[in-house]
């Protein structure tokens, strides 16, 4: 007997990487780079903000990396910001312009920015968590009239560790955006705020009925950030978090990315906090 999908064409290519050439490589800080990738021949579906691709360093391996690029670039390029934390991400970070890497995707859920039209946006990023949120900021600025008040809170270890330093400087002076930057370690004449992202977050005055929040960073940061938002009366379903688990296939077959009832490659990475909260509260789930 046949499976129900027997009439669908088989997809032997799901696990096959598609070649992309590194068009540009920008060193963001001591451990992260941004790669702008252009297709060598066939192009993948352009990823939407929040979605991720599996990036392959030839012969070394694959990792899941959220898209960090501007979707309004219609030139077929894909932009990813990668932090070097292991063998594969180190090899990807070292990829020079002109070299080729493999890409599969896009996979996963989006931030759902369009559904937040007409609402105030609170974007909270910790460390490299700013990368998946950059397309949200760019998307909101590109279509600024569709949204109410837009706040970006970004934290990092020290001033020199912020991603997109040039853009952040521009955004700080952009009247369309309220920006709060905070660091853990105030060195070399840092004149801004020191402490966790929850501190500027707690000071915000928000209208809970018309605010949508987007959080990405270390899991503890997202939990404390979401808690601060809940205390302001924001509904859990209006808080969206991007979660990380081991991902190996992206297609829902390998089972590694499970978080309770979720397959994060399919039901995530972006999840409503109403769903994520009870799962993140259980240790080692």
């Amino acid at each position: 007997m046949m499976t129900e999908t027997a009439l669908r064409p088989p997809e032997p290519q799901t696990m096959a990487p598609v070649s992309y050439r590194v068009r540009s490589r920008t060193v963001e800080n001591a451990d992260s780079v941004t790669l702008c990738l252009e297709p060598v021949s066939a192009a993948l579906t352009p990823p939407a903000p929040g979605e991720f691709n599996m990036l392959y360093a030839f012969g070394v391996g694959e990792v899941a990396i959220s898209v960090s690029g501007d979707r309004s670039c219609a030139d077929g390029t894909i932009t990813h910001t990668i932090r070097s934390v292991g063998a594969v991400s180190a090899a990807l970070c070292a990829a020079e312009p002109g070299s080729t890497i493999g890409v599969r995707g896009p996979f996963g859920t989006t931030w759902g920015l369009a559904e937040a039209a007409g609402r105030d946006l609170v974007i909270v990023a910790g460390g490299v968590g700013l990368a998946p949120l950059r397309p949200v900021v760019l998307g909101a600025l590109a279509d600024r009239d569709r949204y109410g008040h837009v706040v970006l809170i970004a934290g990092s270890r020290a001033q020199r560790d912020f991603l997109y330093a040039g853009e952040l400087a521009d955004w700080q002076t952009d009247p369309r955006l309220e920006v709060h930057l905070t660091v853990d370690v105030p060195i070399q004449g840092w004149a801004g705020e020191t402490g966790f992202v929850t501190e500027p977050l707690r000071r915000l005055s928000l209208d809970p009925r018309r605010t949508t929040a987007f959080l990405c960073g270390p899991e503890a940061m997202m939990r404390f950030g979401a808690q601060a938002l809940l205390e302001k009366g924001i509904a859990a379903e209006d808080i969206r978090v991007s979660l990380e688990r081991n991902m190996q296939c992206g297609a829902g077959w390998c089972g590694h990315c499970q978080l309770g009832p979720l397959l994060l490659c399919r039901d995530g990475p972006v999840v409503g906090y109403d769903i994520a909260r009870p799962l993140l509260e259980v240790g080692e789930l």
């Binding site: 499976t3 799901t14 297609a251």
Partner: peptide, 9 residues
């Protein structure tokens, strides 16, 4: 393996 968005060929 065959019922999702990406059937395993």
């Amino acid at each position: 393996l065959a019922g999702g968005a990406h059937p395993d060929g």
